[in-house]
Simulated scan of single mutants.
Amino acid sequence: MRIPFVKMHGLGNDFVVLDAREAALPALDTARVRAIADRREGIGCDQLIVLEADDSATCQMRIFNSDGGEVEACGNASRAVGMLLGEPATIRTKGGMIATRPDAGGIAVDMGEPRFDWDAIPLAYAMDTASLPLGWDDLEHPLAVNVGNPHLVFFVPDCNAVPLETIGPVIETDPVFPQRINVNVATVGDKGTIRLRVWERGAGLTRACGTGACATAVAAMRRGLTDRAVTVHLPGGPLAIAWGADNRITMTGGATESFRGSFDWDSFG
């Protein structure tokens, strides 16, 4: 059974997209996702994206990290799927309904409203998400926010100096985060500019993370460090993030189709 796919990326965060809106795929399991995502013996990607039919939305988007786990949201994948759809669309995710539309800056995504309650992150116990009384080495007092998936944000003098490849997995799997967490280290340049690096839950260091950019921008705005519209510069490129008076986050940026192909489903069992 040969399955067509589209290989895409958003600022270097790459995806294999499978379109199952008209014909359902066989059941996906962790081993198959890992095999497809493997960069040496599979197609290779940070996330596997599956589009499915939905009676009350343009489509449903399922998101699987390269470790095989299914997650709630992915901002870069949302832009990529928005580009594939080619017109204004509503997309159901496990993290909630989002909307995409073509924009002069690429694809604009309505990412919904951020959540700050400790049990919405979720955390293992109640604490102030605006300044958590927690620390790991030199990283202390982060903010926590859920933008469809859970994020922890640290503001540091130089995000490039943080050994995120070693401290990221330690924080991600700390028991205080029962569903694990994405780890963001950010440096504010001015009221309209942030530099950001992200350790992505289930995927590791990534060149770009759309939900991380949204979470970090909102965290900076919550602390009064920036204006309500900023450019977030990730290793893969910039994203424009705005947090509107209606409490909704809009992310705007590009997405790229790399190539198309097909593979034998049974070869990745």
Results as ranks from 00 to 15, higher is better:
217 A>E: 01
76 N>V: 07
195 R>D: 14
207 R>C: 00
49 I>W: 09
11 L>D: 05
148 G>M: 06
228 R>I: 09
132 L>Y: 08
167 I>S: 06
34 R>N: 09
20 A>K: 10
124 A>H: 10
253 G>Y: 10
70 E>G: 10
136 W>G: 05
247 N>K: 11
55 D>Y: 01
149 N>W: 00
91 I>L: 15
150 P>Q: 03
47 Q>A: 02
64 F>I: 03
262 S>Y: 03
118 W>S: 13
10 G>H: 07
123 L>V: 02
41 E>Q: 06
64 F>N: 08
179 Q>L: 10
207 R>M: 03
6 V>D: 15
131 S>Y: 00
185 V>S: 02
147 V>Q: 10
144 A>P: 00
16 V>Q: 12
128 D>N: 14
11 L>E: 07
88 P>G: 11
239 L>R: 02
203 A>Y: 13
73 A>S: 11
183 V>N: 04
89 A>D: 02
189 G>H: 05
176 V>H: 04
222 R>K: 10
150 P>N: 08
254 G>N: 13
133 P>G: 08
175 P>H: 12
245 A>I: 06
261 G>N: 07
79 R>I: 00
141 H>P: 01
22 E>P: 01
259 F>Q: 08
191 K>S: 12
195 R>W: 06
8 M>K: 11
143 L>Q: 13
141 H>C: 11
269 G>I: 11
246 D>V: 00
231 T>C: 07
